[in-house]
Amino acid sequence: MNHSNGKIPLVAEMALIVMLAAAVGIGWNHKLLRDVLAGKPVQSAVKKETSPQPATTAAPLPLGLEQAKELFDRREATFVDARDRTAYAAGHIQGARSLPLGEFEAALPRFKGEVKPETTLVIYCNGFDCHDSLDLGGKLIKAGYGIVYVYLGGFPEWKDAGYAVEGGKP
């Protein structure tokens, strides 16, 4: 067996391995990738196998500004504001629903009635130092929501970026 000095140059061998892995990876996940490219909501394969039991240990997935904006523009997700009602009333991401962490137990039945479990959720609060969004995301996963992201930059980063915000609804 010869390598760099053999019939197949090292770079070609590397390229071959990469192409093989890409072919298997894309083939294996073709349905998932097709759904993503078509803008359809996707769900964790592990969660699919264990459904209909709600996930009890999964953590919400963190999301950056650009990814959050992409989901917002493609109308693929429901944004959920984890801050208190006063902060929400003072301004929030356009179209976001208010679900304060402190009112979670009381507000959950109505929220579940209006937002289906298969909906992609993007939770946010007051930025990187705020953990309410992570806590709320964990609770929503336990409540049966399968696709839960946490937008870590939160409302301050979104507003600073000049993206769509609006005042609170009564």
Binding site: W28, L32, L61, P62, G64, L65, E66, E70
Partner: peptide, 24 residues
């Protein structure tokens, strides 16, 4: 989702990389 958290790739590219990297 973990790739997306690095905020280096667009949404769709994160899935493409996630599909290929493990097999590589």
């Amino acid at each position: 989702g973990n790739i997306a958290a690095y905020q280096l790739l667009p949404y769709g590219a994160s899935y493409m990389v996630a599909a290929v990297f493990p097999w590589l």
